[in-house]
Simulated scan of single mutants.
Amino acid sequence: MIRFLFRFVGLWVLAGAFVALVLDGVRSIASSEIVTTPLGVTWLSVSPGSLTRFQGFVEGTLSSPVWEYLVVPVLGAPLFAVLGVAGALLLLIGRRPAA
Rank of each mutant, 00 (worst) to 15 (best):
M1H: 10
R3H: 02
R3Y: 04
F4W: 08
L5H: 00
F6N: 07
F6D: 01
F6Y: 13
V9F: 04
V9H: 04
G10R: 06
L11N: 08
L11D: 03
L11R: 14
W12S: 12
W12R: 09
W12A: 14
W12D: 08
V13C: 00
V13N: 02
L14T: 11
L14A: 11
A15R: 02
G16F: 07
F18I: 15
F18T: 14
V19R: 10
A20V: 00
A20D: 01
V22H: 09
L23W: 10
L23Q: 12
D24T: 11
D24Y: 04
R27M: 13
R27G: 10
R27L: 14
R27N: 12
S28A: 10
I29D: 11
I29C: 06
A30V: 02
A30W: 08
S32P: 05
S32C: 12
V35T: 15
T37A: 13
P38D: 07
P38I: 08
V41Q: 15
V41A: 15
V41S: 15
V41C: 12
T42V: 15
T42C: 13
T42N: 12
T42P: 08
W43F: 15
L44V: 04
L44G: 12
L44Y: 13
S45Q: 14
V46R: 03
P48D: 02
G49T: 03
G49K: 10
L51A: 03
T52Y: 04
T52I: 15
F54H: 01
Q55S: 10
G56R: 11
F57I: 01
E59F: 08
G60T: 01
T61K: 13
L62G: 03
L62D: 01
S63P: 07
S64C: 03
S64V: 14
P65S: 04
V66P: 04
W67V: 11
E68A: 11
E68W: 02
E68M: 09
E68Y: 10
Y69W: 03
Y69R: 03
L70K: 09
V72Q: 11
V72N: 00
V74C: 05
G76N: 13
A77H: 11
P78F: 03
P78K: 04
P78S: 02
L79Q: 12
L79Y: 00
F80M: 08
A81K: 06
V82W: 01
L83R: 01
L83F: 08
G84K: 04
G84D: 00
V85Y: 00
A86D: 00
G87F: 09
L89S: 07
L90Y: 07
L91A: 06
L91C: 10
L91P: 10
L92F: 05
L92E: 01
I93E: 06
G94Y: 03
G94M: 01
R96V: 12
R96G: 09
R96K: 06
P97W: 09
P97N: 02
A99H: 08
A99C: 09
A99Y: 07
